[in-house]
């Protein structure tokens, strides 16, 4: 795969807090930093509540960031935006949602769902052009022209997800955030949708932020993978690197926790089973967020928050085990 170096999206120290009551603040995303290169797929994985969906939703401005910068194609889109620039952003950045049953308006015909973006951005000059575009989109995602006049309830889950993809593609975006696009689908249908996403990327040079909890699927589709835990990024590297040489103890245990569909391997494999549950993001542990479940936790982990730094070229990690100063001690 060719090296992709042109940065399409830069996320710097992004934070998103929610006020859940007068006293409590839920720190859903608490300072994540990463880049997305043009034409690549960046996967974001983590358990529920780790902030991966919030990250995606904050980038596309479904939420306003509490702090931090989001730079899209050289332009800061993380601060206050005028309605006009928000509209411009939504033309270039689109989202595919998790639940194909909830993300399509049941009272709208498929053609109107797909053409909504076209209408808002005035991309079609005549109604004929509009319909041509809708037909083109339907065929791109593997549906038929005849489907345009139907309603969402007439489709299966996989087909609905295709409609969601067609809607996202209709405004010809550069960047697509796919938030768990396949987790509501059956295994055999999942493969269909993933193959479709990959074909579209090859043909149209799209950039994806692929958010999922299914690590094997993320590995399959992504060029690089970021692992999140409790609002923080734990590790980020190329997908092969993350799976072959995970550095962060959380990544290691996450990988060993996935049951593999290979009985012989499953019998011999040694697994690290984490104790306990993910702590509450309202009152997260001090220092490193993972220390309460980490098998290698040291004193320093409770006191100092580990720095997010690049240990090897393109391999980022936030863990005291890989801090320069402590490295000698460990060895």
């Amino acid at each position: 795969m060719a090296e992709k170096t042109e940065k399409l999206l830069q996320v710097k120290n992004l934070k998103k807090y929610f006020n859940v009551s007068r006293r409590d603040v839920l720190k859903a995303v608490d300072g994540v930093t990463f880049d997305v290169y043009k034409g690549e797929t960046l996967g974001l994985v983590g358990e529920s509540g780790c902030g991966k969906s919030t990250t995606g939703r904050t980038i596309i401005r479904l939420y306003d960031p509490t702090e931090g910068e989001v730079i899209f194609d050289g332009q800061d889109v993380g601060g206050k935006l005028s309605l006009k620039s928000k509209k411009e952003l939504s033309k270039r950045m689109q989202m595919i949602f998790q639940d194909p049953y909830a993300s399509l308006n049941p009272r709208m015909m498929v053609k109107d769902i797909i053409a909504e973006g076209i209408d808002i951005h005035h991309l079609a000059k005549s109604s004929k052009e509009r319909m041509d575009r809708v037909y083109e989109m339907l065929e791109t995602v593997g549906l038929n022209r005849e489907h345009a006049n139907r309603y969402p309830h007439e489709f299966s889950g996989g087909q609905r997800q295709r409609i969601g993809i067609a809607r996202a593609l209709a405004v010809d975006p550069d960047f697509i955030i796919a938030d768990e696009p396949i987790s509501a689908l059956d295994v055999s249908i999942q493969a269909q949708v993933v193959n479709l996403l990959q074909e579209l990327q090859e043909k149209q040079g799209l950039t994806y932020l692929f958010i999922a909890h299914d690590l094997s699927m993320v590995k399959h589709i992504s060029d690089r993978v970021g692992v999140m835990y409790l609002g923080n990024m734990a590790e980020l590297a190329t997908s092969d690197e993350v799976y072959d040489h995970p550095l962060h103890p959380y990544t290691q245990s996450l990988l060993s926790a996935i049951p593999v569909a290979d009985p012989k391997l499953e019998r011999t494999r040694e697994r690290i089973i984490l104790q306990g549950d993910v702590p509450s993001p309202i009152d997260p542990p001090s220092g490193c967020r993972f220390r309460t479940r980490c098998p290698f936790a040291m004193d320093v982990c409770a006191k100092v928050r580990p720095k997010w730094h690049e240990v090897e070229k393109g391999h980022w990690v936030a863990c005291h085990l890989h801090d320069e100063g402590l490295k000698t001690e460990k060895a």
Binding site: E47, S48, H213, L215, S253, L254, S256, A257, I258, P259, R271, I273, L274, D277, V278
Partner: peptide, 10 residues
């Protein structure tokens, strides 16, 4: 979640 799944399977 996967880490909890591993606990339950075990």
């Amino acid at each position: 979640d996967v880490t909890i799944q591993a606990q339950i399977l075990d």
